[in-house]
């Protein structure tokens, strides 16, 4: 039972971090960033390329690469589109995502590549009378620590204050002296940091990367942000955990015949949430469209 719970929360934690990465960008610039998938995939490939080198160095450089990638996409693709309607921006991010994905296929071909950044954590420990995989435990703890750190950052630093103000009302916050470029760049950097952490943890769990590596987790994290309420960071985190827990529970307790359809149920729930609570379970303030 405890093993199932740890499972559920480590999966949920990864989804929560990814959902937060998407939510951060959405809340400041109303961009549902599909290219977040590549913010996860690219650092995972960096881990693959640097797999011979010391682990710390590999991880550090993959984080660096993720940040640089995020800043570059923001500058080249999303800055010119700022203020355009969200649907067009969604298509644009779809295009960025496909472009990067195909660049990866072009550079590395589409076969899966082995990675194992956290081989140290292969063992397991006994905890409350259950065998707990060390990696999953680490994942869970890392996610919790990052969530707390992010909360502190948003609540108690100047950048965090500016970001929250921008999320509330972008135009008004600019009038009051928040620099648009800086606050958006901060959002992208944070988002990339989260993505890189997800890349390290998730690739350690799966043991391989391929060009669609980030996409599978980002599609589900999208679901989480929508369920939690687009533009609401707490909602995104809760939604991520919720989706992870629900999907693990479905996996464990669904009759075997229906197990392959697990994710279909998940997406069915998404549609239901969208229909009955179009703004998500925890609607963000200031998101309501004004006429």
């Amino acid at each position: 039972m405890i093993a199932v719970l740890v499972d559920a929360f480590s999966v949920g934690g990864l989804y929560a971090l990814t959902a937060l990465g998407i939510g951060l960008i959405f809340s400041v610039m109303r961009l549902a960033n599909f290219a977040h998938a590549e913010f996860v995939t690219v650092p995972a490939y960096a881990l693959f390329v640097l797999s011979g080198h010391p682990v710390i160095m590999a991880i550090a450089s993959s984080v660096l690469i993720a940040v640089m990638l995020a800043l570059a996409t923001e500058r080249i693709a999303f800055r010119p589109l700022r203020g355009i309607d969200p649907a067009t921006m969604l298509i644009a991010s779809f295009a960025v995502s496909m472009f990067l994905q195909r660049l990866l296929v072009f550079a590395f071909d589409s076969r899966i590549k082995p990675v194992d950044p956290l081989a140290v954590l292969a063992g397991s420990v006994r905890l409350f009378g259950a065998q707990i995989n060390l990696l999953k435990l680490t994942t869970m703890v890392t996610c919790l620590v990052l969530l707390v750190a992010l909360t502190v950052f948003l609540k108690y630093t100047r950048f965090g204050l500016e970001m929250r103000a921008a999320a509330e009302d972008f135009t008004m916050s600019r009038l009051l002296g928040v620099r648009a470029n800086r606050v958006i760049a901060t959002a992208f950097v944070l988002s990339a940091l989260l993505a890189a952490v997800v890349a390290v943890l998730f690739s350690a769990q799966t043991g391989f990367v391929h060009p669609r590596f980030g996409l599978q987790i980002v599609i589900i994290a999208f679901v989480a942000t929508v369920i939690g309420g687009l533009g609401n960071l707490v909602g995104a985190a809760v939604g991520g955990f919720l989706v992870g827990v629900v999907s693990t529970l479905l996996q464990s307790f669904l009759p075997p015949d229906l197990r392959p359809f697990r994710e279909a149920f998940l997406f069915f729930i998404v549609i239901l949430v969208l229909l009955f609570r179009p703004q998500g379970l925890f609607p963000a303030r200031g998101l309501k469209e004004r006429i």
Binding site: D85, A87, V270, I271, L274, L275
Partner: peptide, 20 residues
């Protein structure tokens, strides 16, 4: 049911349908 949605909501809902 989903024709009531527009914008991002419609995007996510139709993507969900494709995935289902």
């Amino acid at each position: 049911p989903i024709m009531r949605l527009s914008g991002i909501g419609a995007g996510i809902a139709t993507l969900s349908i494709l995935i289902i």
